[in-house]
Amino acid sequence: MRVLIVVPAYNEQEALGGLLAEIRALDIAQLETVVVDDGSSDRTADVARAGGARVLRLCGNLGIGGAVQSGLRLAEREGFDCAVQIDGDGQHPPAELHRLLEAMHADDPPDLVVGTRYRDKAGFRSTMMRRIGSWWLRVILRFIARVRVSDPTSGFRLYGTRALRLFSAVYPYDFPEPESLALARVAGLRTAEVAVTMRERQGGTSSIGGFSAMYYMLKVTIAVVLTYVRALGRKPGNPDGSNR
């Protein structure tokens, strides 16, 4: 199985080197890594190249959604069997990757595998405010989009071929994780969760905090509702949700 690890990174020169070293140490055949440098102003791209990764250097900052979609597009275009998103801040230990891949070896493999930090209750589980936010998103996704996930904001994910096809065509651009779950549900994709251990970011600063956290909650709530309403009016035979 050809696997592409997609690492979206914005000014992550501190954490990226160590993360890529951990990925290189993995014993997985046919594994490639692409770092999507989301218009960084530091040496992120140089660190990525030095770490042996392929580098997609975006000429402007597209945000996490645009960066992730770049990697997914590359995976879909080059015929990878699946892509795994690992954040460039080092929160997602590459050693946990095998848990996501194991889910794909099931008889009826899911299209999207989400790594959840709330099942095992081990490792870093984020701040209290973020956990409250996560609870709210769980409720919204459960009752509006009918998606059951325990960690809707987790960016540690595996995308199968159907998910690659869907998200190459349409992917939310800012704060995409919860919205993409609703999108996957609407498109008829199967989502599974596996327990993973996460850790604190290994460098750099988070883009979500203070006012942007409130904006995040509001925007994602509206986006999930819109995704559901859009699905109600969608013609059959257009599962990717695009207007094409």
Partner: peptide
């Protein structure tokens, strides 16, 4: 359109570099 163009440009650039 800008998002798509930026992504396509990055992929082309990476291909050229290789």
């Amino acid at each position: 359109r800008t998002v798509v163009l930026t992504q396509e440009l990055a992929m082309l650039q990476e291909k050229l570099d290789r």
